[in-house]
Design a protein around this nucleic acid. Sequence first.
RNA 1: CGGAGCGUAGUAUAGUGGUAGUACGCAUGCAUGGGGUGUAUGUAGUCCGAGUUCGAUUCUCGGCGCUCCGACCA
Length: 407
Amino acid sequence: ASKNAQFLLRGGFIDKSSAGVYTLLPLGLKVLEKINKIIREEINAIGAEELLMPSLIQKKYWEKSNRWGISVIYKTSTGTVDQDKLVLEPHRGKDFEYGLGWTHEEVVSAIAARFINSYKDLPKAVYQIQTKFRAEVRPQAGLLRGREFSMKDLYSFHESKEDLDKYYEKVIKAYKNIFKRLGLKTIICETGGGDFTKEYTHEFQVLNPAGEDTIFYCKKCGFGQNQEVYKPEAHKNCKNPIQSGRAIEVGNIFKLGTKFSEAFGISFLNKNGEKKPVIMGSYGIGPTRVLGTIVEEFSDEYGIIWPETVAPFQVHLVELSGKDPDSKVTKAANALYEKLVKSGVEVLYDDRDASTGEKLNDADLMGIPNRVVISEKTLAAKKIELKIRGSKKTELILETQLIKSLL
RNA sequence: CGGAGCGUAGUAUAGUGGUAGUACGCAUGCAUGGGGUGUAUGUAGUCCGAGUUCGAUUCUCGGCGCUCCGACCA
């Protein structure tokens, strides 16, 4: 199994429900929410508003864009496998056909068609963080490729190509901020746009052997291309050799142009009273895939090493009291726990009646940045023991020092 | 979608045409107490359906599920 699946399952972050479908357990959800918070902050900062669209999307929407039929595998009411659609059981003598949302251009376009009428309504950008469904025949690599996963999808609407281009650059900047805060080094790669657009689209790729894509890039000039469209002549002005490697795609951005605005009739009257189609862009980041990617990037033989920005807790407090629930060690650890929580520190308190080795190994596996141990030894020294996850050494420090360093 | 394999306890596995064993886990006791400690007792299982057979967990067929290689991947 892949590293992220192994550590996340063993550490109690996720639980496998079926192939490519996972529950985020309380610990994993905490991490996901931290990732989402960073994404929201940066996307809000470029003027987009959050909304929430449905997952169940009626056939008529998909038919307008000619995408009914690329969707999810489900059983139809007749019991045969149909690759195209979800058919709900007959009701009042009628089948109801829906596609489960694997992207939301159709829904957002229908909304935009109703609300956008004038150049004064533009530009506009909306996004959501929502569960998506895809007919992956072969899910793999834990959270890196699932049948159900979380996605932040942002859609923008503009009166001109130039305005879209400007916003596209703003999104690139926001994405750079997001991935930087998540601790991920990304390479922006050009790739073909599929049936979306003839223009190049861009992927944010994290170099990692667990990745499914092969990319070509240059560290010096910033050149990056996916293998699918690789054209080395685009790099001829730089003398630095091109490198290649496996990479995980954590985000992608598209200029949709007028494909959807034409299909759904999203138009506006410009200053001259002329009717024009709206120019659109679409921009995705997969938070659950990001979660898996972070684990692929930050771990050692013992477990995960969370970056502080997304760690489920700041402190993993371990008390080594042995069996006696009334021992001085337990009381001191309880007191420290209360004090940390009151100070606003996020603490995971391991007060299990388990062996020392078990507790310390679990702490390594779970990867919380600061491990604090309270034991007979630390009480004797009137200090607490701190170990930063990922470093080899432990240090004895004063409780006040610890709290100060965490706030 | 092309190719391969697998389905036995909560998990990981062994074995058999005559109804199943081991390890871990879990429960309880005793010992231990700074890197998954020792010990005793207990707990729990053959994916579903059909066929062959006196008898199927084992063989055959179908279904469902899972894994791996490749293709696809807005």
